[in-house]
Design a protein around this nucleic acid. Structure first.
Lengths: 164, 164
DNA sequence: CGCAGATAGTTTGGTCCCGAACGATCTTGA
DNA sequence: TCAAGATCGTTCGGGACCAAACTATCTGCG
């Protein structure tokens, strides 16, 4: 496959090209591979699990959050799904038009909107999530099993550090 | 801040809600936090480093790849940047119109297009990348320094596993 | 040679994505 | 009480994003 570089080739080229600059190469390796890994895993899951239900990644995450919390306010969903409220608004419209969830205007506070899955939405998630989890196991299969919690914890630290 | 959950609250709710299902919870924790971390880091870097140069994330990554490889074919850039060739085509048009790079039709093979940074593009990257690296150090500051290479390696394994 | 198939990049159509501006609703303090 | 400010979700404009269809080019085999 001409014109393709392996990960090793890329990292070696980076080291050569940036040699002599005053950089934190270890931090760079972590973040560069963080984005590569997240991207690769996401693409893999979109193709293998989500595509057959005609769901986008964000659509799935939004459904997942609402499913986990039974009922959720939109600002919670936006925060947990990692999208802006503007984006969420559009995605909710899409999912609502497909009958997977419902918006309800808050009764106590008229500014709020809460989201709840419909029966169809719950059924979809119930069938889909175990498959999604299989894909999660698949993409982590190269890691030492006892190492997993430590990796999850390291990723939590990154999330925390990036929130200010 | 009402309506916000901490990471701990979320993971505990997930455990409760999915209790009893036959799932790989450790793999789930890794991937869930992988996406959270990547998202948080990306947003942080977009706001703090990229915004002032009016660059999008993808725009920056594309410039970075072309900068590292001096000159690159578009399929290489698409692969390394983790976007489809369709997306790349549009992003290249944007960056080219801003005078940061140039497309050149391949001479030996007329189907190929190679990309090269202009002087302005090189100057931008030379100034921007050290700042970007500072942000990389910032988001990894919560991690034990000697642990960094192991984390980078674990992320490489995930990338690898997700590529089939 | 010449044409069938492979390969590269672009275009198209539809969704996602964000910041900023907006209208609606709630809260607070004088 | 009621106006100023805060907070919520939506809308708007423009870029990113992908799959599929398309054009152009190259390769190889008869």
């Amino acid at each position: 496959m001409p014109g393709q570089h392996t990960l090793d080739e890329t990292e070696s080229q980076v080291a050569t090209r940036l040699a002599g600059m005053d950089l934190d190469f270890e931090a760079m390796a972590v973040t560069a591979n963080l984005f590569r890994a997240a991207n690769a895993a996401r693409n893999q899951m979109e193709r293998t699990v989500l595509a057959k239900s005609n769901l986008t990644w964000t659509g799935f995450v939004v459904l997942w959050v609402a499913w986990i919390w039974e009922t959720a306010e939109t600002r919670e969903i936006a925060s947990e799904a990692g999208v802006s409220k503007a984006t969420l608004s559009g995605v909710l419209t899409t999912l609502e038009s497909r009958g997977l969830l419902e918006r309800k205007r808050g009764e106590r506070d008229g500014r709020l909107v809460t989201v709840e899955l419909t029966a169809a939405g719950k059924k979809l998630m119930k069938g889909l999530f175990p498959e999604f989890n299989k894909a999660e196991r698949h993409v982590t299969r190269g890691l030492d099993r006892p190492q997993l919690p430590a990796i999850a914890e390291a990723l939590r630290q990154i999330t925390q550090a990036a929130r200010d």
